[in-house]
Nucleic acid binder design. Structure first.
Lengths: 254, 254
DNA sequence: CGACCCTTTGAAAGGAATCAACTTATGTGG
DNA sequence: CCACATAAGTTGATTCCTTTCAAAGGGTCG
């Protein structure tokens, strides 16, 4: 299918751009990319921008022409209801592309925001799609990203609809621990989750008051604690047990 | 990119198999497929099977090798919790492929069931993916299907987390009306939704008792009624208003 | 005809939301 | 350096919606 060999994450050439490197590294974590796929990614023109917290990157109803790669900070996809309540559908950390769906859908049915100050890299959708058209393996990798994203959303449904308040928070912390670990950002089971308790409530369909009580409960039970936006997982197995957490849906490592 | 012209739904040759015809027709509703894409779909080997209601098509944790096209009936993707509660993530009607994700994910993180008696067509994942590799436009169409599916799930999150019981039911009925209409199966705003009130509750994270009360409320308000699994939308605008329904997320018609 | 599943309705219980008050950080400017 | 403003976190008391429990009615199919 290709004359290039299979690329190993550790054998990467120093990437021309940090953004390309982040994207390549992420895709390599779960996909077999050829060396020429990595080269292809490095030909993409990324436009790097810093955004403050609570900025709108892409509004609902908009017609995006560029995809966004998160290089730093936490971004979210969200939607407002008539009465002003806000639902955060997903949060995105370094290396993720929250709006890959822009490749094939014309209108945004939700909006894209920063929760914390973020560094973002923009690529033209057309450019990314052109790259896909020349490489089935790159297509598979990006398509797969959108499918894992959907799996995370499915699990979000289960979490919101079937777990009690404290269990929901525990489940969310379990997920974020794994996701931060997968990018090497959770040494000692400790990571910076740069969002407020209100934000967490908007993810889990809880009031910030309930989030606060749930965090206290998890702290008192010695499972996890969060202070100043730093999460510490104290007892990993106990937290997972409490949350009925099964990491299959993250489809990590193959 | 191709020597063939753009295919029109109405100008289709009589398909060799009903399954291929259903799939082609569905994809053509929102995508520009070339004539050769339709031909490509018709070369796929579909294995048609009838299944009774409440059958497991694909179990959680399984490693699927075939994708499923629904030809008749209602299928669902669902997950169980430790305490036996069941969450239905999505329901699928004629023409839909509930498990396109099998193309790129190795393990099922949820299960696939029939809610009503179903006629299903199975295609080998590898065969479908090979077809994709020869046609960017077919790839785009199928990829898009998975993205719309994800959008529907996102909206499910919003529906469950932010709407009251009766509004949830109203929203679900609005969605199903549009989806049935898009395949010509809802004349006079009336369609067969072959699932029990318990099933609807499992979709909307409500007890069957609450679903029943919600249906009564919608009936008394003259918005919609459901009897013997036949749904009649009495006042479309009023129902949509009650549900805060915005069909953008279905991404119908391009 | 009777068994079973589904639907319908009432009454009681429970968990989270809301309301309200207070504390703790963070940052600004006088 | 401190007074002040603002945002975020903490905690208690009350309200409300949905669940759960319970029981009866209706359709369908062997």
């Amino acid at each position: 299918m290709s004359e290039g060999g299979v690329a190993e994450a550790d054998a990467l050439q120093p990437p021309r751009s940090e953004a390309a490197g982040l994207l390549a590294r992420r895709l390599l974590a779960s996909n077999r990319l050829e060396a020429r796929d990595v080269a292809l990614i490095e030909t993409l023109a990324f436009d790097v921008q810093d955004h403050p917290a609570r900025a709108t990157i892409l509004a609902e109803g908009g017609r995006p022409t560029r995809c966004v790669l998160v290089m730093r900070g936490v971004a979210s996809r969200q939607q407002l209801t008539r009465d002003g309540a806000q639902q955060i559908h997903s949060v995105h950390i370094v290396g993720e592309v929250p709006d890959l769906l822009s490749l094939h859908l014309k209108r945004m049915d939700h909006s894209l925001h920063t929760l914390s100050p973020c560094r973002l890299a923009f690529v033209r959708c057309a450019e990314l799609w052109d790259a896909c058209k020349t490489s089935p393996s790159l297509t598979a990798a990006l398509w797969r990203e959108t499918l894992v994203d959907a799996a995370i959303q499915r699990t979000s449904i289960l979490r919101i609809s079937r777990l009690a308040a404290a269990e929901r928070v525990a489940h969310f912390l379990c997920e974020m621990l794994l996701r931060f670990e997968s990018v090497g950002a959770a040494p000692d089971r400790r990571f910076v989750l740069d969002m407020t308790q209100q934000d967490i409530g908007d993810v889990l369909a809880l009031s910030f008051v309930s989030v606060n009580r749930a965090l206290r409960e998890l702290r008192e039970r010695g499972l996890a604690s969060m202070e100043r936006r730093v999460v510490t997982i104290l007892e990993r197995a106990g937290l997972a047990e409490c949350a009925q957490f099964d990491p299959t849906y993250l489809h990590m490592g193959e």
